[in-house]
Simulated scan of single mutants.
Amino acid sequence: MLGLIISLLVVGLIAGFIARAVVPGRQHLSIPMTILLGIIGSFVGGFLGFVLFHHDAMDGFFQPAGIIGSIIGAIIVLVIYINVGGRRRVTR
């Protein structure tokens, strides 16, 4: 169980960091928020992979396709976050 949590955090950090590097502009996210971005991106990427390919890989987290799907999911989540978060800002 501890290994699962650590691997989830590591994959989340890597996917979130790469997503933040790929998406242009400045994102005001802390390291825990970057990890959360990557974890949510992993779920989004896994869901999209299941919907597109109708195949659920049960071989563990550290697969090239799983990490790439996590990065793509994190990019999608970050773009949505920027677009939704940008509308709520109040300028004075």
Results as ranks from 00 to 15, higher is better:
30 S>G: 11
16 G>W: 02
2 L>M: 00
81 Y>C: 01
61 F>M: 13
6 I>H: 00
6 I>N: 02
89 R>K: 14
74 A>Y: 08
76 I>D: 02
8 L>K: 05
43 F>K: 00
53 F>D: 06
80 I>P: 07
27 Q>H: 08
17 F>G: 08
52 L>G: 11
21 A>N: 02
7 S>Y: 13
7 S>D: 12
48 L>K: 06
70 S>I: 11
49 G>A: 13
11 V>M: 05
18 I>W: 00
92 R>F: 13
58 M>W: 12
15 A>Q: 05
18 I>P: 01
65 A>S: 15
13 L>M: 00
46 G>H: 06
35 I>E: 04
75 I>P: 15
47 F>Y: 12
28 H>S: 06
46 G>C: 10
1 M>T: 02
18 I>E: 00
40 I>L: 11
43 F>N: 03
49 G>S: 12
90 V>Q: 11
88 R>E: 06
73 G>F: 06
88 R>N: 03
2 L>H: 04
11 V>G: 00
75 I>G: 05
86 G>F: 08
72 I>Q: 13
78 L>C: 08
14 I>R: 14
6 I>P: 02
58 M>E: 04
48 L>E: 10
31 I>N: 08
83 N>F: 14
11 V>A: 08
68 I>R: 07
48 L>D: 02
7 S>Q: 13
69 G>V: 02
56 D>L: 14
74 A>R: 08
2 L>S: 08
13 L>W: 02
12 G>H: 06
50 F>V: 03
73 G>E: 09
40 I>M: 14
53 F>M: 03
36 L>I: 03
69 G>T: 06
91 T>M: 08
51 V>H: 01
17 F>V: 14
9 L>A: 12
87 R>N: 11
10 V>W: 03
92 R>D: 07
36 L>T: 06
37 L>P: 03
9 L>T: 00
38 G>R: 09
9 L>I: 05
68 I>P: 07
18 I>Q: 04
19 A>D: 01
76 I>F: 13
70 S>M: 04
78 L>R: 13
54 H>S: 14
25 G>C: 06
72 I>A: 15
74 A>K: 14
